[in-house]
């Protein structure tokens, strides 16, 4: 539904994105994840036909964004980063204007507008001036204008930025409800958002795509290991050595020691479950086994590994923010 190939954009001397390639299958919600300044908005502005790329090509809903821009624009709904709306218009008339410009037929228009106002829950403010609305309402009006023509593809640039936690939850569930009927690409610099809303992810950093795919497969790709956490009361050096002796174990790290118990993180080859062996080992050595569990790798760790691996400072900050 979205195919992007070697997209590059220069702003004067600044190269915002370079050779960006990815694709999004129909009906999917894909997260476009990256720290601030990574080039997310630039990519989305090209996909939405707001501006042409310097080189490379992109097809959205089967049409080229540059050569068949009008065809693409008939099939998309776009929500820019700062949600620019006409503050001096009222919500209802504004949505009717958008519906008309987007070619919703006169007979359908009233019904469509009423429908999206209901779905985005802005019907109670339909007679208010947009400029007097709270950020959360404005965001929902922005979403309403994006979906009012029932487009095949939705391009949402940081749809939850600047909202309070309750509003964020609302917007996310609204976006989730769009899956299936629409193909959605949404950009964000907040990690948990991707795991919560999206089925796939494209990670972009400093203008280049560094990873993409379904979230689970990305985790496997970047963490080709199975991880187990154990808490054992016993002499740490001996515990460490004996666990390392189990076949398939790649590394053991002890994390902290309290009241004679230590916590160990055991990495084993993927597909290898070493929990039973650790249990038997502890029983045999008469160590007290306080805890034994498998730890799932998270997207957050993938992100930190990819982004922080390339550069310390800025990405660390983004990761910290993402964790918050």
């Amino acid at each position: 539904m979205i195919e992007v190939e070697r997209l590059t954009k220069h702003y004067g001397p600044v190269t915002a994105i370079k050779d960006v390639s990815f694709s999004v299958a129909p009906g999917q919600i894909v997260g476009f994840l990256g720290p601030n300044g990574a080039g997310k908005s630039t990519t989305m502005r090209i996909l939405s036909c707001f501006m042409p790329a310097s080189s490379g090509s992109a097809r959205v809903a089967g049409h080229d964004v540059f050569r068949e821009s009008l065809e693409v624009r008939r099939r998309i709904g776009y929500l820019p980063e700062n949600v620019p709306l006409y503050t001096e218009m009222r919500v209802g008339p504004y949505l009717e204007f958008v519906a008309e410009v987007k070619g919703v037929s006169r007979s359908d228009r009233r019904r469509r507008v009423a429908d999206v106002m209901d779905r985005c829950r802005v019907d109670d403010v339909q007679n208010r001036l947009i400029g007097t609305l709270s950020k959360g309402y404005r965001q929902r009006v922005g979403l309403a204008q994006a979906i009012v023509s029932d487009p095949e593809v939705l391009i949402l640039d940081e749809p939850t930025i600047g909202l309070d936690p309750r509003q964020i939850t609302e917007i996310r569930s609204l976006i989730k409800s769009l899956a299936g009927q629409h193909t959605v690409i949404l950009s964000t610099h907040i990690l948990p958002e991707v795991s919560m809303v999206c089925s796939g992810v494209i990670i972009i950093n400093k203008g280049a795509v560094v990873a993409q795919g379904p979230i689970d497969s990305l985790v496997d790709q970047f963490f080709p290991t199975a991880r187990v956490e154990v808490e054992i009361v016993g002499p740490p050096p001996a515990v460490r050595d004996r666990i390392r002796g189990i076949s398939g174990v790649l590394s053991v790290e002890d994390q902290m020691v309290a009241n004679g118990a230590a916590r160990y993180v055991v990495e084993a080859a993927r597909g290898r479950d070493v929990r039973a062996e650790i249990f038997k080992l502890a029983a045999q050595q008469q160590w007290d086994l306080l805890e034994l569990r498998r730890v799932g790798m998270t997207l957050e760790e993938v992100f930190i590994r990819i982004v922080a691996g390339e550069e310390g400072g800025e990405a660390g900050a983004a990761a910290a923010e993402a964790g918050a």
Binding site: L70, L85, V101, G103
Partner: peptide
């Protein structure tokens, strides 16, 4: 200035 042009120019209108 307000950025609304970004939406206007991405609507299916020449």
């Amino acid at each position: 200035q307000t950025g609304t042009i970004e939406l206007l120019l991405t609507y299916p209108v020449r």
